[in-house]
Design a protein around this nucleic acid. Structure first.
Ligand code: FES
Ligand code: FES
Lengths: 138, 138
DNA sequence: TAATATCCTACCAATTTAGTAGGGGATATT
DNA sequence: AATATCCCCTACTAAATTGGTAGGATATTA
């Protein structure tokens, strides 16, 4: 399951997507509009910025905005940044790979199934973008 | 990601599957063969029993065995018993549904994508059985 | 230089995860 | 009936993760 933090991230990004092209948006505005605890949201947006999905501006007239169009931000990327691995096992993860002790990857049946599952999941999550979820929700 | 406990469950079930039809298998045998902490495994097997996947016998000559053939135990069931929901959001879960506060399901774009993802995942995990992972790993 | 707004570090409580410890109860053999 | 075997149950615990808070440092604008 995705963490609450990840769901907050999606909601915040949706808001930024809805306001794409309108200049910097205040954290406090997003916090109010999407009912996300302000200081927690601050952290989330900062992580998204470090992952190069957002850009920010300090001082008056500052705030956050999407770095690229909502059509270019896919959901898999967001989940990886905030939630971590998408695969169900570390030995199957493309971006967070870790070897399994006491298990030979070449002959592991569980791993084979989880690889298929991962591919099916990614096929969807890498295709669906912020734009898709904003548009679907109007 | 699946918990370590879930991975232990798969390994234990694989062992029981490999020995299907040979009568009760000792927890300690599974523990040794699959390198799973004994007391932890005890707990796991008991949960699988309560979920009606295993049957047990006490006393000498006792142990655990699969209640049905490895071909009839699908991976989704196992994950649900030990790990919990398969869906990425509670509002999308078929077996562990919970409503999202501050979010209208009818218009929620995230939910739509996660529903598609869940279906794709289930299509695989409900089809693949214990037999598949045992056979693939030989 | 004052006001504004993000950035950074540190802390915290609650929950979950990954176990351990120890005895109780059922069963089979002797 | 005694005993050894083996699952069952309750309770406890350490460590990690989750979901936050608090407070100040830093950058920007006016
Ligand atoms: S589960 Fe990772 S290699 Fe078997
Ligand atoms: S995320 Fe569950 S309804 Fe929107």
């Amino acid at each position: 399951m995705l963490s609450k933090k990840t769901r907050y991230a999606f909601r915040a990004l949706s808001y930024l997507g809805e306001n794409y092209g309108k200049g910097p948006i205040l954290i406090s505005d997003i916090s109010k509009a999407k009912k996300i605890p302000l200081k927690f949201l601050e952290n989330i947006l900062n992580e998204l910025k470090k992952a190069d999905l957002l850009e920010s501006k300090k001082g008056k007239g500052g705030g956050y905005s999407l770095k690229v169009s909502p059509k270019k931000i896919n959901l898999a990327t967001v989940i990886r940044v905030i939630n971590g691995p998408i695969a169900l096992l570390p030995c199957v993860s493309l971006n967070f790979y870790e070897r399994c002790e006491d298990c030979d990857e070449t002959y592991c049946g569980i791993r084979k199934v989880m690889t298929i599952t991962r591919d099916a999941t990614l096929k969807i999550l890498e295709k669906k973008t912020l734009h898709d979820i904003i548009f679907a929700s109007i």
